[in-house]
Design a protein around this nucleic acid. Sequence first.
DNA 1: TTGAAAGCGTTACCAG
DNA 2: CTGGTAACGCTTTCAA
Lengths: 334, 334
Amino acid sequence: MKKITIRDVAREAGVSITLVSFVMNAKRDENGQLDCCVNKDTAKRVLEVARRLGYRRNQAAASLRSGRSKTLAVITSDIANPFFAEICRYIENTAYVSDYTVIMASSDEKAEKMDKLIDTIFGYNVEGLIVAPSPGSENVLQRVLDTNTPTVLIDRDVKGDAFGRVMVDNVNSGCMAAEYLIGKGHKKIEMVSYDLGISSFSDREKGYMNAMKKAGLGSLANVRCASYDNVGNDVVNIFKDAVKRGVDAFILPTKSLSVAGFKALNSLGIKYPDDMDFVCFDESDVYEINEPPVAHIVQPVREIGEKAVEVLLNMIAGKKEGKDVMLQAKLFGE
Amino acid sequence: MKKITIRDVAREAGVSITLVSFVMNAKRDENGQLDCCVNKDTAKRVLEVARRLGYRRNQAAASLRSGRSKTLAVITSDIANPFFAEICRYIENTAYVSDYTVIMASSDEKAEKMDKLIDTIFGYNVEGLIVAPSPGSENVLQRVLDTNTPTVLIDRDVKGDAFGRVMVDNVNSGCMAAEYLIGKGHKKIEMVSYDLGISSFSDREKGYMNAMKKAGLGSLANVRCASYDNVGNDVVNIFKDAVKRGVDAFILPTKSLSVAGFKALNSLGIKYPDDMDFVCFDESDVYEINEPPVAHIVQPVREIGEKAVEVLLNMIAGKKEGKDVMLQAKLFGE
DNA sequence: TTGAAAGCGTTACCAG
DNA sequence: CTGGTAACGCTTTCAA
């Protein structure tokens, strides 16, 4: 099972390896015609032989010689997180149609792993990087910038002029959530958030506050914080207290908070939505199955993935404009 | 921003490139000592210089020369499917500790895409492949076998002696589900399945039937089929009919069937678990949040991922034994 | 429109 | 222990 090289094809087709290289790299125009300076018949013969022999370009060699690799890398904190998994899916899809291969990796939120990952990944001469930065990765990202590798940030922001960005308008998401509940006639609307110091949370809080103020409910607005490691208990306690104070509704700005919210409702014997109404975030079977279904705000994962690749490929191509994209989330209510 | 090569390191350290190559490839033994024939001090100096210059091995060159790539590929039908996403996560983790990089791709269940994927992936000289084969991919997998690339099948089986396999004992899963319901005193226990001709389904059905027969309930056993594209309606109709016939409980052998099951319950006004009991499969927030929580059977995703890599690395190393692994699912009930 | 030849940065071999 | 040197398979001038 010897590997077929460009040389084998050349010999078999009776041409030089240069020609084979030309043909194999030629793009097809809209008519399916080979767009290169090689004689049509020669090209056809080469293609024929290559197919018959089962030739496959050796990426390593191509990459070594050309410096390009037709490879992108994606680093998220955890590819098992459905939000990121779905984004990756669309990234992969979009990259695929431009003939790019994608390497994905999870940083585990650990700077050390992120560091080693970067090392490995850059060994592969990736042409570009898409990252959902975890808190504390600023210095690692700086190292990335130092290599001049085009990089697009998604989901979370980090300072740096050279980055491309595909973000979601979280201020508006928080605002939409609040306005939806206000529209249903609720007044005492509060929010449970995490105290992680991540921009997406503070933005959602900000949007919520803005909407409350705009509706003249500013004095009733209240953001409570749960700790990430002890969501369950924290939410139960927050709800207990909230019931005493006659809170009508909560905004739960992540899926994990929402799930904790429903569990808390169960354990406290509070009825959704009559005793306590919700607007949740992200997607969960629970939102659909519940009777009535739960209003929730969904991030445009598909667009995030697609735009991220688009922006990245533009950066790789050296274009300067259009590096910043802001997307809108969508509310699903009745 | 010139790239630092092995040559730069050699010059700076005053040694030959050969030596640098030796040092950079040396593994560290348990004492953190370099395990190679190079002089300790020289090695230390080289390492020092490499770090100072920010040297990173050029994978493309290494791979071209050595034929090895330290890269594995994973192909599932859809990496956004949480089941696969989680497996991928563990694959990545496990590969990582053995210094392997992972390329992941989704076949979309389309043979054509799978085909192009294989082409691309093999261009990268991957050393091994982990695949969750979609129905109809037998011929593509045959092409893979032809290249002599070690390949491990997960989740679904396909004929072929050369494959490694990491499977879950679905017969036993079906059996466990049935026995759990029998243990709760139910008699009229039925199952809703898909008619996709995939081994995991037929195995779960088989296990269910076995358990029913063993309990003397063989005559009550009944497997109904829903179509994949119209689950919602099909399940509603199946449940309507089941209620008439006094069915106590259903086994729902996938998450999508389970979700459809709960929706159907809602729309028909049937109460879980008093009117109708369930054993579901996979993981969902619904199972946890529901009051009482829903018994469900979870596949050992972590072990699947870890074992798959382990088996694959063994195959790459040329070991012949231990290519087949059978794992057990676990039931979460009260 | 075609071909010869020079590398790309490593590793592997062989000689010292 | 150390170093010289020939590949690896491809892309990319440059020349014909």
